[in-house]
Amino acid sequence: MTKVAMIGAGSWATALAQVLAQNNNYVVLWARRPELAQQINQGENKRYLPGIKLNPSIAAGTDLEEVLHQAEAVVFGVPSHGFRDLLKVSFPYMRKDAVIINVAKGLEESTLSRLSEVCVSELGQEVLNRYVVLSGPSHAEEVGLNIPTAVVAAAQEIKMAEYVQDLFMSQDFRVYTNPDLIGVELGGALKNIIALGTGIADGLGFGDNTKAAMMTRGLAEITRLGYSMGANLITFAGLAGVGDLIVTCTSMHSRNRRCGIAIGQGKSIQGAVGSVNMVVEGIRTTGVAHQLAQKQGVEMPITDQTYKVLFEGLSPRDAVLNLMGRGKKNEVEEILLTNKAE
């Protein structure tokens, strides 16, 4: 059996551990809290993935050195803002040839970096020879129940993406590969902003037409920013782009959508986050994307209005009116021929 270390013990980390264990891998999760590790060792993560009986090949512990000892692959299943610190403390205990798999969907707030860039800044450029990101439309609640799901593994070295494909792929969990690390990372992170915005529109009581418009135009601005940063346009038509956008903007499993709904219904930002009771990646990502758009000279109107709601006190209803009142645009020309603000 291949030993896989899972850094993190939340819902997504636990669901992926279940996938790996069903593929005859031995998975050890690292948890901060002893009581959570004990719960997992008893066969269920009642806090984050209740009601799902865990595979006997899943264990958990709180000692990083023990969890990482001789692990062939290390999966980081923690929120993006905790990635750098956990990478630093984990690295001394990792095998020098261990494959690093990141499943977080976010950007680093302080540096505006993608998480692969964070990894390079800590471990050096050569780490990209064994770094893979796993992304796509995949709610932990459904993956844990073996509901058919398709995701994408992206890496600079395609052999590494294929390794992760083999590690995770099963009859219920289909994994594609993609060499566009930049596009897959950005697609997974930026869709959370659009899910927040779409949730706000839902909370205001708007309909399916509004949601469709937000998602479609949201994809256009994600693509503009991604292209300006070196991503392949086609990636955004795939699982990490439109696929993840659809599921995050339409499902009540989505933390970002639920948070947006609460904001649209009148809750404060703090109150909306508290009602979700989990990390809402899209809030930090909105701040980062707002700065990246200015840096790249890219027009991102939905991101801009969402930023103003979250950080400048703009009312959600005024934000929607601002979006609807923008000047006339040519849709096809904007997507295909330009990526800079006019």
Results as ranks from 00 to 15, higher is better:
S110G: 00
V28H: 11
L123A: 10
L112Q: 13
Q42E: 15
G187Y: 15
A154W: 13
H69I: 00
A31Q: 09
N256R: 10
N146S: 14
T62C: 15
R174E: 03
I234P: 00
W12I: 14
L337H: 00
S315D: 09
A59C: 11
G271M: 13
G10Q: 05
G241C: 08
S251R: 04
M1N: 04
R32T: 02
L314H: 04
S170A: 05
S254Q: 07
S90F: 00
G287F: 10
L336D: 03
G136N: 04
A71M: 07
V99S: 03
V27L: 10
G183R: 08
E312F: 04
I58D: 12
A272K: 02
N330W: 00
E342V: 11
N322A: 13
V19I: 14
L128I: 15
R32D: 01
V152K: 03
A240F: 07
G327A: 15
D166M: 07
T216H: 02
G197M: 04
S315I: 01
V288G: 09
P179Y: 14
E331V: 12
N102Q: 08
G297K: 02
P316E: 04
A5K: 08
V332K: 05
S11H: 04
T248E: 04
F236K: 12
R47K: 13
V143E: 06
T149N: 11
E331Y: 15
A212Q: 02
I194S: 05
V288C: 08
S90N: 08
F236Q: 08
E72W: 06
A272E: 07
G297Y: 00
A153C: 08
G238R: 01
N330F: 00
R32V: 03
G266I: 09
T14A: 06
S135M: 14
L64R: 11
V133Q: 07
S254G: 04
T177C: 12
D318L: 12
R255C: 07
I222E: 05
P179S: 01
A262P: 11
I302P: 11
R258Q: 12
I200C: 07
S170E: 10
L49F: 03
G313P: 10
N322W: 02
T149G: 02
S315P: 00
G43K: 02
Q265I: 08
Y93F: 15
E65G: 04
A240P: 01
R258N: 13
R84C: 03
L186H: 11
N45E: 09
P148H: 05
V276N: 11
